[in-house]
């Protein structure tokens, strides 16, 4: 028997902070972008919202493609992270639907950005990446908070941006790095 191939998507919810609020609260920018989700978001509500978005964008075809194989494997409100599982053939469809979503799917949800951080074929890798990212985020936030307010030492550890980006892309594009040595 051939097993069913799947894709796991690690998704981060990013909240662009209010500039006025930041300057009052003096929160490091990194922390402000990665706020916890304060709404009572449940996995069921999330799945329902994603299904609705997919069927809005892709109609019955999309709804059928994700029927029965879309599920939320993990949802952490504190870190605003969740892991989705879906069929390998249709993960791009799910991803693009997430790109089009613009607010937390509860009543009066805040506007936000759903950012897919990693796509993988096994949940173990995804889990490792999630743990790693959370740890780096904490370290970076600590560093930023303890840094002297005047110095721009913000060692943006999360912002090893190129790498994060490359990780997400499934295909090997390592030779791309050569060109942007500006």
């Amino acid at each position: 028997m051939v097993r069913i191939k799947e894709r796991y998507l690690l998704v981060n919810i990013v909240y662009p902070p209010d500039a006025t609020k930041i300057s009052k609260a003096r929160v490091p920018g990194l922390v402000a972008h990665h706020q916890p989700t304060v709404e009572k978001l449940t996995p069921q509500a999330l799945v329902r919202a994603i299904r609705a978005e997919v069927s809005l964008l892709y109609g019955d075809y999309g709804a059928g493609a994700l029927e029965g194989n879309l599920s939320v494997k993990y949802l952490s409100l504190a870190t605003s992270t969740f892991i989705l599982r879906c069929n390998r053939a249709h993960y791009q469809l799910l991803w693009s639907a997430l790109t089009f979503m613009d607010r937390v799917p509860v009543k009066d949800g805040r506007p936000c950005i759903f950012r897919v951080v990693r796509v993988s074929g096994t949940i173990r890798k995804i889990e490792e990446v999630a743990v790693e990212r959370a740890r780096k985020l904490i370290l970076a936030a600590k560093a930023e908070a303890s840094a002297h307010p005047q110095s721009s030492l913000s060692t943006n550890i999360l912002g090893t941006k190129e790498d994060a980006m490359l990780d997400v892309m499934d295909n090997a594009m390592s030779d791309e790095d050569m060109e942007d040595g500006s």
């Binding site: 990013v14 662009p16 791009q92 469809l93 991803w95 693009s96 997430l98 790109t99 613009d102 506007p111 936000c112 950005i113 759903f114 950012r115 897919v116 951080v117 980006m165 997400v168 892309m169 295909n171 594009m173 791309e176 060109e179 942007d180």
Partner: peptide
């Protein structure tokens, strides 16, 4: 700020619309 998307999301979106992902990456970088 809510009109922005992460680069990987953009690449995937345009991949769905028929732009190869390498070319989409070029469209963001080179």
């Amino acid at each position: 700020a809510f009109g922005l998307r992460a680069p990987a999301d953009v690449v995937n979106l345009f991949n769905v619309w028929g732009l190869q992902s390498e070319k989409a990456m070029e469209g963001l970088r080179t």
